[in-house]
Amino acid sequence: MISTLAPTGTAPASGMTEASRRRAMAKANRVVTFRIKRCDGPGKASYWQDFKVTVPKNANVISCLQQIAANPVTADGKPSTPVVWDSGCLEEVCGACTMVINGKVRQSCSCLIDDYAPNEGDVMTLEPMSKFPVVRDLWVDRSRLFHNLKRVQAWVPIDGTYNLGAGPKETPASQATHYVLSTCMSCGCCLEACPQFNEIPDQGSKEANEAAWNSAFIGAHAISQARLFNAHETGKELKEERLDVLMGTGGVNDCGNAQNCVKVCPKHIPLTESIAVIGRQVTFHAIAKFFRG
C-alpha cells in the first residue's frame, strides 16, 4: 500500500507534519497575485493576466479561481472575463482540475495557497497543461489520454453482465499491488512531465487525430494500466494484443527513462516499475513470437 503518509516510525507524536508547519506560518487574508496564462480558444494566441485575490487561511487554487470568476477584474483594475478551468471532485480523486502551477503540473484542488504563497504579495502562476490542446484558458482537451486506454484495451473482457459467479480469488499482497495501479485517475500529470510525450497539433478530424495519436508515445499512464490488466486473471486474455501494441511505434520502447512520471504522480503509482514490467513482458513476448511464429 502506497501512501504519502509519513512512515510510522518517523512521524512526530504530535502528528504535525512539515506541511502543517508551513501552513501555520501563512498569514490570513493576505493578497496574493495570480498570474494566469489565458487563451480565448484553439488557434488563438495566449496572453498573461494578473488577478489579485484576498486569500483566507486554508484556501486552495480552486477557491481563488472561484473568487476571480465571481469578480473578474484584473490586478490593474480592468474588467475581464471569468477564467475558465476544469474541475470536479475537489478532493483529488477525479483528476479534472490538473494544471501547471508555478511551473509544475499538479491538481489545483489540493494545491493550498498557504504552501505556495504564504506571504503578502506572493505571486502564483497558473498555466494550462502544455501537452494537450487548450480549449479555453486553463481547460485542455485530454481526449488523447482516454484514447490511449483504448489502444491497450484497458479492460477485463468479461462475458457480459449476467450472473456468472465470483471473480478469481486474489491474495492480499496481489490486491495491494493492483489497487495502487487502479487508483490512476487519468489526470495526465505523468504525461505533462514526460519529455517523450509531446503535443500533437490538431489534425483536422477525429480520425486523423486518432491516427496521429496511435503512432505517438502512449505514455506511462496507459502502460501502467496495461500492466494492471495483464496481471488480472481474465484481463490476461488480451495480454498479447496489448503487448503487440506496446512493442510497436509509440509503445513502451519510446520511454526515455527520465522518470519524471513517477515523481509527479499524485497517487504515487509506481509508474517506472510498470514501465519495467511491461518492458520485460514485451521482451519475452517478442522472443516467444520469434520462435513460435
Partner: peptide, 25 residues
Amino acid sequence: YFAMSGKSNTNRYSYQSNWRYSLQR
C-alpha cells in the same frame, strides 16, 4: 532519430533522473 522525438524539460522538472535523460541525448 529517437532523441529528436523528445523535448527536454529540465527547466521545470529538475529532477536528477530528468537531467540524466537530457544529458543522455
